[in-house]
């Protein structure tokens, strides 16, 4: 029983971080209708940037680093979208996805060239400490990560719900042509949306860098988690993404605790395949698969 409770708590804490890590993917899918295969690489970039800031600025707290990594990643995202992704949109789903695929492959090489192949971790003072509540052990790092993730997600939700930008984004998502008619500059809104998605990866990456070691190829695991969560939640549904992230965090910790760590890596792939075959709309999505549109 103690193990189960411990596992569930871990799962929820991890799940909150996963929710932040996959929110950008959900946003770019929901609004831009592209499956952004670079998202895992963006998260890792955020993590590496945090590592550099942390080591250059003499142990600056990674949570404080978020204030820097978020705008930096936003800029990177904006540049990426305008230079490489927007030009491929006319070519249809396949073209855009393959462009993100190409960036994803190239990014791994860049990581290795800049930060090397040895695993890097950001180690603030609380990285190895934990709180004990009776039998329950809650590591500080996980707890802080979860709290910060929820705060950032709350801020993102508020922007989408209450600001003019947020209304434009939602309008452009539900009907691009209509949004254009009422004076929304859809192409700029799209670039901003992609930038916001990348910015969430700046925050997510900073938190990840404390808990997981960074290697050039670790984007794969994060991309897989993100795709699994977004598919499970129903593509384009933010509430769905959040719930799916929590479920996913719990599922991963359950497999780690009761099966084996070596099988945990399989969880996202199994989820992606199972969801897309058996429940393509996911838990909350209105539209989970791409149908050949009728003219």
């Amino acid at each position: 029983m103690g193990l189960l409770l411990q596992t569930l708590v871990f799962g929820v804490l991890l799940g909150s971080l996963y929710a932040l890590a996959s929110s950008g993917l959900s946003l770019t899918f929901g609004v831009l209708r592209i499956v952004n295969l670079v998202h895992g690489s963006l998260l890792i970039t955020g993590g590496y940037l945090t590592y550099t800031l942390w080591s250059v600025l003499g142990g600056l707290d990674p949570i404080v680093c978020i204030l820097l990594t978020t705008p930096m990643m936003g800029l990177i995202g904006w540049a990426l979208y305008t230079a490489l992704i927007r030009p491929t949109i006319a070519g249809g789903d396949g073209g855009t996805m393959m462009a993100t695929f190409a960036v994803m492959i190239a990014a791994e090489g860049i990581f290795a060239l800049v930060w090397g192949n040895t695993p890097l971790t950001v180690a603030p003072p609380y990285a190895r400490t934990s709180i004990a509540l009776g039998d329950l052990v809650i590591p500080h790092a996980q707890l802080y990560a979860a709290i910060v993730a929820l705060v950032v997600l709350g801020a993102l939700g508020a922007v989408l719900r209450f600001t003019k930008l947020g209304r434009s984004i939602r309008a452009a998502a539900s009907n691009p042509a209509g949004a254009r008619l009422v004076g929304i500059r859809v192409s700029r809104v799209n670039a901003l949306t992609y930038a916001i998605g990348a910015a969430t990866a700046g925050a997510g990456g900073a938190l990840i860098s404390v808990i997981y070691p960074l290697t050039p190829d670790s984007w794969g695991a994060w991309l897989a988690r993100g795709l699994a969560i977004v598919a499970l939640g129903g593509m384009g549904s933010f509430l769905g993404t959040f719930v799916a992230a929590l479920l996913f965090g719990v599922a991963e910790t359950l497999v780690t605790a009761y099966v084996s760590l070596t099988w945990t890596v399989a969880v996202p792939y199994v989820v992606i395949i199972a969801v897309l075959i058996f429940k393509p709309r996911g838990l909350f999505g209105a539209r989970g698969r791409t149908d050949v549109s009728t003219p």
């Binding site: 598919a231 989970g288 050949v292």
Partner: peptide, 29 residues
């Protein structure tokens, strides 16, 4: 082929990516 009964376009691309990685995990485990 069976997967394409349900998953087209981007969904199919995601499934193929996941299948490749899953097979790698199986080969390891």
């Amino acid at each position: 082929g069976l997967v394409t009964r349900r998953a087209r376009g981007t969904a199919y691309i995601m499934v193929t990516f996941a299948a490749l990685e899953l097979l790698k995990v199986l080969a390891m485990n």
